[in-house]
Amino acid sequence: MNDFIYSKMKCRHNVCVWLERDCMRPRASIREYEVLRAVITSGTVTAAAHRLAISQPAVSRLLAQLEANVGVMLFERRGGRLRPTAEAMRLNSKLDRLFDALSYLDSTDPSDPTSQPLRIAAPPTLGHRFLANLIASFMKQNRGQVISFETCTSNGLLSRLVDDTIDLGVTLAEQTHSAMELIPFYQTHAVCVMAHDHPLARHDVITPELLHGQNHIALMRRHMVRTRLDQVFARAGVRPNLVAEVATGVSAITLARAGIGVTVICPFPLLRQNEPDLAIRPFHPEFMYRASFAVSTIRPLTKSTRAFMRHVKLAVRQIPNTNPILTQDVDNRPWL
């Protein structure tokens, strides 16, 4: 019985020693992997040395180091040539991603903004109705600049900034988070939208009192602006008749156009000056919306990100009847 216990303890001790030695084993270098691939491809040390522009002894030494580091024999000498073992071929097959990454880095100029994709995200309404055209014009002005553009929720912008999967977000939400900074570039007031023949269309301004009992199309409760609008109604002591909850302003306008009810929304970037089948009226008390750039507070803005933000600012100033906000860049200088 005691011999059995001793045997198990000895086995455990041996395993511990093996693990300790394995952890202390030096890791192979990228240069050693380069030599492995060069010898497999060329078949001789001489050809590999010429390909890598190093001496033959250096190739032999690096191969020996690699075999020592991985703990297996990688080549057999047959007829004056080195023949890779099965272990060498398996190891080489796993190196494709490494050398693809190195090749990409070698071809990348960190000082050239077009060498890295500009990653942008925005909610669908802003993305499709506003940003897509600006991305197209920006790419025409900056030939070679690669753009990665996706749509997501405003909450999704935050997670993408934290995970470093985007460089820039554009949003109408007013979220706060230590990892995200909002830089407003445009502001506008809420409007009340309804079919052109709706009874309320005769009013020049729509107030909460006029909406009491009226069929109302609202954004989903997850939207912060929905909470703010509900508070406006509560303070006025009115209760519109909620007939639909929608996820986007596009859907709200579509239902209003069909005569389902009225909706109080942000007109940017959905509404044009000429909407003959809609009645668009100011909503009082004033209800402000701000369009903002969402940027990381952890990582500095790239050159291409700053350039695109300036492009958006300039474009907004060209839109009739807009209210752009003068902001400053990260160096505390005017944008344009």
Score class of each variant (00 low, 15 high):
314 L>Y: 01
253 I>H: 03
256 A>M: 05
129 R>N: 13
216 H>V: 10
168 L>Q: 05
183 I>F: 01
118 L>G: 03
249 G>E: 06
60 S>Q: 15
87 E>N: 11
240 P>R: 12
57 P>S: 12
189 H>T: 01
122 A>W: 07
24 M>H: 13
131 L>P: 05
326 L>E: 07
252 A>Q: 01
48 A>D: 06
280 I>G: 06
171 T>S: 15
238 V>K: 05
47 A>T: 10
121 A>I: 10
258 A>V: 00
159 S>Y: 11
237 G>L: 04
185 F>E: 02
305 T>R: 10
195 A>P: 00
27 R>Y: 14
68 A>T: 11
248 T>C: 00
34 E>M: 09
90 R>W: 06
129 R>C: 03
284 H>C: 03
289 Y>M: 05
71 G>Q: 05
108 T>N: 09
245 E>W: 08
201 A>K: 01
82 L>Y: 13
251 S>C: 01
24 M>Q: 12
18 W>M: 09
292 S>T: 05
108 T>E: 07
206 I>H: 04
72 V>T: 11
161 L>F: 11
293 F>L: 03
132 A>D: 13
186 Y>I: 08
133 N>W: 08
141 Q>F: 01
258 A>C: 03
109 D>N: 07
19 L>W: 08
18 W>C: 11
181 E>V: 13
283 F>I: 01
91 L>H: 08
197 D>I: 07
181 E>I: 12
203 H>S: 11
265 I>H: 04
141 Q>T: 01
271 L>V: 05
221 R>Y: 14
328 Q>R: 07
43 G>L: 08
89 M>V: 07
190 A>L: 02
37 R>Q: 15
222 R>V: 13
158 L>T: 13
217 I>H: 07
